[in-house]
Design a protein around this nucleic acid. Structure first.
Length: 655
RNA sequence: GCGCCCGUAGCUUAGUUGGAUAGAGCAGCGGACUUCUAAUCCGCAGGUCGCAGGUUCGAAUCCUGCCGGGCGUGCCA
């Protein structure tokens, strides 16, 4: 059961006697787990605000509440402390009985489903096919997958839909590459590899010309302009007023910093073009394909316009591109219910714009179709001057399709925070368009930073590839596996290394508050101590190991309905933590924050470590206690295992 | 210019619509191994929660101003 929710219900009932319903509902939320064990297991903080409202001393209000409160089934008599806190201590008998029931419940370990199941559509990962996935896709994929699993486990209906980019310029590149540079033998043998090569090759050529003819001159202009404004600012006398002077000096510093950044950027671009030019063969090809940028766009436009040959190539290549993507998902253990990419909505876009126009939401401005929204400076553009549609259009079509197909209560977009403006506009437009009942949420997250605190990039400034990232983590995890003396075969060591390595990346990501940026560090994520996957996996293996060593038949134990007794403080603390698994999952599901679960698991593992240190299990003083403690071990292992699996992280029985 | 987000211990960070003495981990110091997996555990030390005001029984959390940083901002996604 969800103990916290139950306690809040009981308080709501008691509060309804002394306050109106709305206030009672609000005040009941002030029941929280206690921070400090000396204040009991839970505390209610509602007497202070209520006392204020009623003009009565809070301690008297607290006493009146306790009078009306029915929690005797789970708690010792409540105590009033300090200015009017109500402290609750769980009954040991109730804890023991609840855990015994959880032991017997092999499917859910006592985790109650939510009272009101909802239907969620989850939109996450969303890579562009044909382009290799990179570090920027990790968080969306990992957070989305964890939320999917938690929401489903607590009883919601969840539909994951990977909104892949399968209709963009990258196909123009592949088509162009196929027409000019294909190695037929290679494509026959391994289409995925050859298409990947073609994409990278054409992309490099396009990039080279764009850099040379546009990016560098544009940057040079920008540098000149920045230099000019800087000179201008320097020439101006500083204001006399101290505050204005400081501000002017700051502006000057910022302008200098900006100029330095621009110069460094220019050097990086020049180095990139020089690299191409240093390769004689590549330089020759580049010279022969001077208009490759335009040509690629033309191939893309032809595909969109329905050109038969290009359409055929697209249909032929898409499966291979999807297969490449799937290979990465396989390594991560991520699956989707649906993968409806941009191309799926291609024939639905014109109707979206027509409808917006008919409803007078979209109007023409500078030749583009725009939705002007209150509170936004910029319009939400749904069709460009040249008639092309944008991702805004696709996103609207996608909402319409999802509503029609699944009638969800909520659609969640797990996308990085830089797109928040887009989603604000998208949601505002969708509501005006008629979808005003559904919960539309941007589950935003911060950037993955390198150790230097800047966005995680390779030395040359490109995004770090996801596959390489996973390789590196698994390689480093191999060292941990090698150190183990309980692993017997190379194969087992490889399996363990894989689970630790992939788990480390996922866990590090999930353990951070998703809204903030976080620093990517192999050393930290693979540490055996602290809040890491490896530590959690080790904790699990340690608990699990007891059964083997003690020759214990777990199944028999679980069905024996042997009683659990909580005598040592460490046993009781562990028991309380175990009981709180349900409310933790419900909180993750309510706030869409997986780090609540990692925090919980780490706390549980710490409580177990302390229990393990203080309470002999196999050498317990009596058989009854031995069995009781084994049951606590079993529940701990199951809870850690379940928790990790809901985060998409695999466990190992020994390591 | 405007908008959004962030600033917590040396480092990485948590902090449940405002709750009791701001929690962890790493690094540092000190303890515990004839082991239930010491890949661990226990303890100590380390904080003007960017700064200054305000709101109130109570503020890291809410409001205002300032300082420092990131991101976004009409036809990319």
């Amino acid at each position: 059961m969800n103990l916290l929710a139950t306690l809040r219900d009981r308080f709501r009932t008691a509060l309804a006697d002394v306050a109106d319903d709305a206030a009672a509902g609000e005040l009941a939320e002030l029941v929280l787990p206690s921070q400090d064990a000396k204040f009991g297991d839970y505390q209610a903080n509602c007497a202070m605000p209520l006392g204020k409202r009623l003009g009565q001393p809070p301690r008297e209000v607290a006493a009146a509440l306790i009078e009306r409160l029915d929690v005797a089934a789970f708690c010792e008599p409540p105590e009033i402390a300090g200015p009017g806190f109500i402290n609750l201590r769980l009954k040991d008998e109730w804890l023991a009985a609840t855990l015994a029931a959880a032991v017997a419940d092999s499917d859910r370990s006592g985790v109650a489903p939510v009272a009101e199941p909802r239907t969620y559509v989850l939109d996450y990962s969303s890579p562009n096919v044909a382009k290799p996935m990179h570090v920027g896709h990790i968080r969306s994929t990992v957070i989305g997958d964890a939320l999917y699993k938690v929401l489903a486990f607590v009883g919601h209906r969840v539909i994951s839909d990977n909104h892949i980019g399968d209709w963009g310029t990258q196909f123009g590149m592949i088509i162009y590459g196929y027409k000019h540079f294909v190695d037929e033998a290679a494509i026959a043998e391994s289409p995925v590899a050859e298409l990947g090569r073609l994409y990278r090759y054409v992309n490099r050529l396009v990039d080279y010309h764009a850099t040379k003819s546009q990016a560098i001159p544009a940057l040079e202009d920008k540098i000149a302009a920045a230099q000019a404004t800087l000179d201008e600012k320097r020439a101006e006398p500083l204001p006399d007023d101290a505050k204005a002077k400081k501000k002017a000096e700051k502006k000057l510093r910022q302008a200098e910093g900006a100029l330095t950044d621009l110069r460094n950027e220019l050097l990086a671009l020049q180095a990139k073009t020089a690299e191409v030019e240093a390769d004689a063969a590549l330089a020759k090809v580049a010279a022969a394909h001077a208009d490759i940028g335009k040509a690629v766009l033309a191939e893309t436009a032809a595909l969109h316009a329905g050109d038969g040959a290009n359409r055929e190539l697209w249909e032929r290549f898409l499966p291979a591109c999807r297969a490449e993507m799937e290979a990465t998902y396989d390594r991560l253990g991520v699956k989707f219910d649906h993968t409806l990419g941009e191309s799926f909505y291609e024939d639905k876009l014109a109707a979206v714009v027509d409808d917006l126009k008919a409803k007078q939401l979209a109007t023409e401005s500078d030749g583009a179709q725009c939705v002007f929204l209150e509170g936004f400076d910029a319009p939400f553009i749904v069709q460009k001057q040249d008639g092309a549609f944008l991702y805004a259009t696709t996103d609207l079509a996608t909402i319409a399709y999802r509503m029609e197909t699944w009638s969800p209560d909520a659609i969640l977009y797990v996308v990085d925070h830089r797109q928040s403006l887009h989603f604000e506009q998208l949601f505002a437009t969708a509501r005006q368009w008629g979808y005003d009942e559904v919960e539309l949420q941007h589950i935003s997250f911060g950037t993955v930073l390198g150790e230097d605190g800047r966005p995680y990039k390779t030395r040359t400034g490109s995004a770090v590839g996801l596959a390489g990232l996973l390789d590196e983590a698994v390689d480093r995890a191999q060292a941990i596996a090698e150190k183990s003396d309980v692993l017997t075969s190379d194969e087992e060591r490889r399996t363990v290394a894989k689970r630790i390595g992939i788990g480390a990346i996922k866990y590090a990501d999930l353990a951070h508050n998703r809204t903030s940026d976080y620093k990517f560090s192999y050393d930290k994520m693979l540490a055996m101590t602290g809040n890491t996957a490896a530590y959690m996996q080790y904790s699990y293996a340690r608990v699990h190991g007891i059964f083997g060593r003690g020759g214990v038949d777990i199944e028999q134990l679980r069905t024996s309905s042997a009683p659990i007794s909580l005598v040592e403080p460490a046993e009781r603390a562990l028991a309380v933590a175990l009981v709180q698994f349900t409310e933790t999952l419900h909180r993750v599901a309510a706030d869409y924050r997986p780090n609540y679960l990692t925090d919980y698991l780490f706390d549980l593992a710490s409580k177990y470590a302390s229990f393990f240190e203080n309470c002999p299990v196999l050498k317990a003083p009596s058989d009854e206690l031995r069995i009781s403690r084994l049951l606590l071990c079993d529940l701990t292992a199951r809870t850690i295992g379940r928790g990790l699996s809901l985060l998409g992280i695999e466990t190992v029985d020994r390591m």
